[in-house]
């Protein structure tokens, strides 16, 4: 793939993290699905805000993303604290 050379550390970290979540919730695909939904909602909000050039306040803040993921990953402290390493302003 074109990303193979000069792969940013963030990319590798993200791949490892997604794999970890998939493995951890192998028997609960709905948890993984919910996690993806949270991420995609966050991304959509960020994009809306960017396109509006400051005239749009995202309805999903980093704190809310973190809170939603915390609820999803309850009793999985390691996954949650690792998620905090990705989130801006966490």
């Amino acid at each position: 793939t074109p990303l193979q050379n000069n792969q940013p550390v963030e990319f590798n970290h993200a791949i490892n993290y997604v794999n970890k979540i998939k493995n951890r919730f192998q028997g609960q695909p709905e948890v993984y699905k919910s996690f993806l939904e949270i991420l995609h909602t966050y991304q959509k909000e960020q994009r809306n805000a960017k396109e509006a050039g400051g005239n749009y306040t995202p309805t999903l803040t980093e704190q809310q993303v973190y809170a939603q993921v915390a609820q999803l990953f309850k009793n999985q402290e390691d996954l949650l604290s690792e998620f905090g390493q990705f989130l801006p302003d966490a």
């Binding site: 970290h13 993200a14 791949i15 996690f35 991420l39 995609h40 801006p88």
Partner: peptide
């Protein structure tokens, strides 16, 4: 080797762009 679906890849994309943004805001 990784068995990644397009959805997984998009999760990786979102997470890594979040991390980049975080790094940019910290430096």
């Amino acid at each position: 080797s990784y068995d990644f679906t397009p959805l997984d890849s998009s999760a990786v994309y979102v997470l890594s762009s979040m991390a980049r943004q975080r790094r940019a805001s910290q430096s």
